[in-house]
């Protein structure tokens, strides 16, 4: 992270907008069914490894790549565009 990035990041936390964007993302991922899909992926991993002790770390390693690929482009685009415009309008103030 560069200094500029860090400042932008800190400003987002300070203003509470980071949480607002997170909430927006969370909503969109629920609406489009992504959360349910990821839940199914996790269930599959647990089922495959029924004999072993499934840990959180293992679940994260196995599910993350597939879960990331499942995020719809529309959601990514919306968030990217909104964060971008938001940061650009902030700068002028």
């Amino acid at each position: 992270m560069t200094v500029n990035n860090t400042i932008a990041h800190q400003r987002l936390i300070l203003s509470g907008d980071r949480e607002r964007f997170k909430e927006l993302l969370r909503r969109r991922l629920i609406e489009c069914g992504w959360r349910d899909q990821v839940r199914m992926l996790c269930r599959d991993v647990v089922k495959e490894n029924e004999s072993n002790n499934v840990t959180f770390d293992m679940l994260v390693t196995r599910v993350t790549p597939r879960a990331r690929a499942l995020v719809p482009d529309t959601v990514k685009k919306e968030l990217l565009q909104k964060i971008k415009t938001h940061l650009l309008t902030q700068k002028d103030q």
């Binding site: 203003s15 907008d17 607002r20 909430e23 927006l24 909503r27 909104k82 415009t85 938001h86 309008t89």
Partner: peptide
């Protein structure tokens, strides 16, 4: 693009 606009649904 004000925060209210972005998050309003």
């Amino acid at each position: 693009n004000a925060p209210e606009g972005v998050f309003e649904d």
